[in-house]
Amino acid sequence: MDDDVTLHGPASWEGSPRRYGPVARVAVLSDIHANIPAFEAVLAEPDVAAADLVVLNGDLTWGPQPQETYELIAALGDRALCVRGNCDRYAAEIGTGVRVADTPRQQWIADRHSPEALGFLTRVPFGVVVEIDGLGPVHFCHGSPRSDHELVTPATPSERFARLSAAIDARVLVTGHSHLQFDRTVAGLRSVNPGSVGQPYHSGGPGTAHWALLGPDVRLRTTRYEVSDAVARAHRAADPDAERYVAALLTPPAPQEIVEEAESLVFVN
């Protein structure tokens, strides 16, 4: 790790990750990026509706419909465990005046959160641990256990993975951030990414949300949704970055491109 990299780990008010469980089934939804049609489609899946907990693994509201995304999360009540992503951190900091927006879109997104939604984002923890039947303790974080903007991919070398996971007490590490769905064993731990609900990087057709079901094993899942609805909502919302957002929905970059770029950069906001 470069000495000049600023790590974005637990906030000053946080201690060790809060622990939950044991439970039988956990649905993991990551990187929703305020894509309401994709989010609603996954929430409607029977296995998600029946899960004991729904872990929302970061980058929740950063996209065309942030307030609506917050309201769907709030409606899940105590079943939802949220983890803070780098974009959630940005939205909270900009929305509360702690940070100055670098682009018009950053300010636009922050402005579309109600005071309640911004308050929610400021309280989302960096990570959680859930005891899941068949898997044992599972550590959830957005980037890595040491920073919300560190990328973990299917090609992360065992040496770096061992360093980034050294402090956790778990048998399985679930991350997001890379928008890549995978399940591998490395450096003695199981490394899982459910992929992205709202903006997955994959080789399949558009209109596919990625997620995972945990317990008693790991099942990587996909759900079809109406991508034209997501495109129309981005334009109706007057998202300043609508064209780039839509392009990523309709023609996502190839996973291998993302892996190569991510492993060359390691830390990406």
Rank of each mutant, 00 (worst) to 15 (best):
V5Y: 01
L7D: 04
W13G: 04
G15S: 06
P22S: 03
L29P: 01
I32Y: 02
H33V: 05
P37E: 00
F39Q: 00
V42K: 11
D47V: 08
D47Y: 09
A49R: 14
A51R: 00
D52A: 00
L53I: 04
D59H: 02
W62D: 04
Q65P: 11
P66H: 07
E68G: 13
Y70C: 10
E71N: 11
I73A: 00
I73S: 02
C82I: 08
G85N: 03
E93S: 14
E93V: 00
G95D: 05
T96W: 08
T103H: 03
P115S: 10
G119S: 12
F126R: 01
F126H: 07
E131V: 01
G134V: 08
L135A: 11
G136I: 06
P137H: 12
C141G: 06
C141S: 11
H142N: 12
G143T: 06
A155L: 08
T156A: 07
T156I: 12
D169F: 15
A170S: 09
R171V: 15
Q181R: 01
D183R: 09
R184F: 01
V192I: 15
Y201G: 01
H202R: 06
G204D: 15
A212V: 06
L213S: 05
L213E: 05
R219Y: 00
R219F: 11
A237K: 14
A237H: 14
A238S: 05
D239L: 14
D241F: 06
Y245L: 04
V246Q: 03
P253W: 01
P253S: 00
V259Q: 03
E263Y: 08
N269P: 00
